[in-house]
Simulated assay, not measured.
Amino acid sequence: MKKFTSLLISLIFILLTGCSANDFEIKLSTPKSFTPDQATPIQMKILDREGKPVEGAKVSADLDMQGMSHGDISMKMEEKGKGVYVGQADFEMEGDYTAAITIDYKGEKWLGEKRFSIVYNKAQ
């Protein structure tokens, strides 16, 4: 009986997790490098469950360098149309970052994460 109860609870948990799957697909585009003391464009394309562009959302992102604790880079993303949102980030260090993304769309909020790496632009 104990095994059956554990199995039943596990199945319910899996079903609940599946029902709360991501409402959005986010395609994050970042440059491979940045130039110190210059804003770096960060772009996201946001699609709904059916693959249609999400328009009219309020989007923001906090960029956090992994393993460091010298503050997040906060960005409000500006809508450019067809599900594309763009923000500007002022990077101080190269490394691995996590973008904590907030989407407020039709009264509902969604939180997600994307990871990326960026290096100094050595051509300068």
Rank of each mutant, 00 (worst) to 15 (best):
T17S: 09
D48G: 00
A100I: 07
H70A: 05
G67S: 09
A39N: 05
C19T: 08
L63A: 04
E79H: 10
A123S: 14
E79L: 08
I118T: 03
K3V: 11
E50T: 09
Y120F: 15
F4E: 13
S69G: 15
I42T: 09
D23C: 03
A61Y: 06
T30N: 13
A123T: 15
D90G: 01
D72V: 13
L111Y: 14
F116I: 01
P36E: 08
S20W: 09
E55S: 10
C19S: 09
L28G: 02
F34L: 07
F4P: 00
V84H: 08
F91C: 03
D62Q: 14
S60D: 13
G81E: 06
M77N: 02
E113M: 03
S33V: 13
F116S: 04
D64T: 07
D23I: 01
R115W: 02
I118A: 01
K58D: 08
M77A: 11
K76I: 14
G18Y: 06
G87P: 02
K27V: 15
M1H: 05
T40F: 08
E25Q: 12
S6F: 14
H70K: 00
Y85I: 07
I12M: 13
K52E: 15
L111P: 00
Q38A: 03
Y120R: 12
Y105K: 08
I73Y: 10
G83Q: 10
R49V: 13
L28E: 03
I103E: 10
L15W: 12
D62I: 03
M68Y: 11
S60H: 02
A57V: 02
L15F: 15
Q38W: 00
I9L: 15
E79S: 06
G107P: 06
E55D: 15
Y105D: 12
D64R: 12
R115N: 15
A57K: 02
D48F: 03
D37K: 13
I46D: 00
S60A: 14
I14E: 10
S10I: 15
K45D: 09
F34C: 09
F24D: 13
F13Y: 02
W110V: 01
